[in-house]
C-alpha cells in the first residue's frame, strides 16, 4: 500500500502531538485566530482596533487571576482565595478613598492585607502541609467574612471607586489601547522572566514535578511556597483593583464570577494542575480565548447560560487533549 502516505499522515499526527505538548501556545494562537475569524463571519465588521481594545481590556484582569492559578498549579497547588482577596482589595481601596492618605493609602492597605492573607495561606500550605485547595478555600472564608465586617464598619463613611482606578481600569488610549496594560505588561514581563530565568522559577517547576527530588536536591519547599502564595495574593489584589476600576463597582463579591474562568484560562493555556508543566504565555492566550469566546457567544445571541455550558465543555475537551498528548511515552 502507499506506505509513504501513511507515514506522512503519522508524521503529521506526531508533529501535532509534539507541538501541543511542547509548545501549546502555537495551536492556542491558532485557535484564537479561528475564533476571531468566526466572530467576524458572524458579525461582519465587528473586528476593529476598538473591539480589540475592549477584548484586551477585559482579558487583562482575567489573565492576572489566571496567572495566580498558573503559578500555584505549577507547584501542584491551586488558589481559590483569589476571588475573595481580589474583591477585598477593590473594596478596601474604595472605602478608604476619603481617608487622609487618599487612594495611595487605600491601595497600600489593600495590597498589605492581601500579602498578609497570602502569607498565612503560604504558611498553612508550606509549613503545615494543608492541601492548597482547602487552605485557600478556608482563607477565602476568612477574607470574605472580614470584608463583610469591614463593609458594615465603613458603610457610613461613604465610598466610591477612586477616579484613578477607574482611569487605569477602564480608559483607553485613542479608544484602542487600554491603560490597564500599563500594569499588565510589566507584570507579565516579570512573571515570564521569573519563570524562565530565575532560580525561584525553576524551583516552582521542580516542586510541582517531583517534590521528593526537589527536597533531595536541597529545596526547602516551605520557603518557596510561602513566597508563592504571597505573590499570588498580591496579584489577585492587583486584578481586583483593575476589575473594580473597570466595572466601577466595589463589592465583597466582585471577583467571584472570575474565579472559575481564571482556572479555566490556566488549564486551557496548557498548565497542568498536577504540577511541573505549563507557563504564563499560554495562560494569557487562554484568557484571550475565553474573552473572545464570550464575545462570540454574545454576538450569536447565546447569553450567559450557554456561555457557561460552552466554557465547561471546552475545559474538559482541552484538558483531555493535553492529558492525551502528555501522558504518552
Amino acid at each position: 500500500m502507499n506506505a509513504s502516505a501513511r507515514a506522512n499522515k503519522w508524521l503529521t499526527a506526531v508533529t501535532w502531538r509534539r507541538l501541543l505538548r511542547d509548545r501549546p501556545i502555537v495551536p492556542l494562537m491558532g485557535l484564537l485566530a479561528i475564533l476571531v475569524l468566526v466572530i467576524e463571519l458572524a458579525d461582519p465588521g465587528i473586528v476593529s482596533p476598538e473591539w480589540t481594545g475592549v477584548i484586551v481590556r477585559a482579558s487583562v484582569p482575567l489573565a492576572i487571576l489566571a496567572g495566580c492559578q498558573t503559578l500555584t498549579m505549577l507547584t501542584g497547588g491551586i488558589d481559590l482565595s483569589v476571588a475573595a482577596i481580589g474583591s477585598m482589595a477593590g473594596f478596601v481601596t474604595a472605602t478608604l478613598v476619603h481617608s487622609p492618605g487618599g487612594v495611595a493609602e487605600g491601595i497600600i492597605v489593600a495590597l498589605a492585607a492581601a500579602a498578609l492573607a497570602g502569607l498565612l495561606t503560604g504558611i498553612g500550605v508550606g509549613v503545615f502541609r494543608v492541601h492548597p485547595l482547602i487552605m485557600t478555600l478556608g482563607m477565602s472564608f476568612v477574607v470574605l467574612g472580614l470584608s463583610n465586617v469591614w463593609q458594615l464598619q465603613m458603610v457610613q463613611t461613604g465610598a466610591g471607586v477612586p477616579d484613578s482606578l477607574r482611569w487605569i481600569g477602564s480608559s483607553t488610549l485613542a479608544q484602542v489601547v487600554p491603560y490597564n496594560l500599563l500594569v499588565f505588561i510589566p507584570l507579565t514581563l516579570l512573571i515570564l522572566l521569573g519563570l524562565r530565568r530565575t532560580g525561584y522559577g525553576r524551583l516552582l517547576y521542580a516542586i510541582g514535578d517531583n517534590p521528593v527530588a526537589a527536597r533531595l536536591s536541597g529545596t526547602r519547599a516551605w520557603q518557596v511556597l510561602i513566597v508563592l502564595y504571597v505573590i499570588s495574593a498580591v496579584m489577585a489584589a492587583i486584578a481586583g483593583l483593575l476589575i473594580s476600576g473597570l466595572t466601577n463597582t466595589a463589592s465583597v463579591s466582585l471577583v467571584d464570577t472570575s474565579l472559575l474562568p481564571a482556572v479555566a484560562a490556566a488549564v486551557i493555556g496548557g498548565t497542568s494542575i498536577l504540577g511541573g508543566r505549563g507557563g504564563f504565555g499560554g495562560t494569557i492566550v487562554g484568557a484571550l480565548i475565553l474573552t473572545v469566546l464570550t464575545a462570540l457567544l454574545t454576538v450569536l445571541g447565546l447569553p450567559e447560560p450557554t456561555r457557561q455550558v460552552v466554557f465547561g465543555s471546552i475545559i474538559v475537551v482541552v484538558a483531555a487533549a493535553y492529558t492525551r498528548v502528555t501522558s504518552e511515552s
Binding site: R202, L203, Y205, A206, D209, N210, A213, S217, G218, T219
Partner: peptide
Amino acid sequence: LMQRSVRENIALPFTTRVRRWGL
C-alpha cells in the same frame, strides 16, 4: 524531574538556596 529538561535537572541544586533565587 521527569517532565523537565536534562539541563534543569542537572542545575536543580544550584538554585535551591534563597540567595540563588534571583536571575
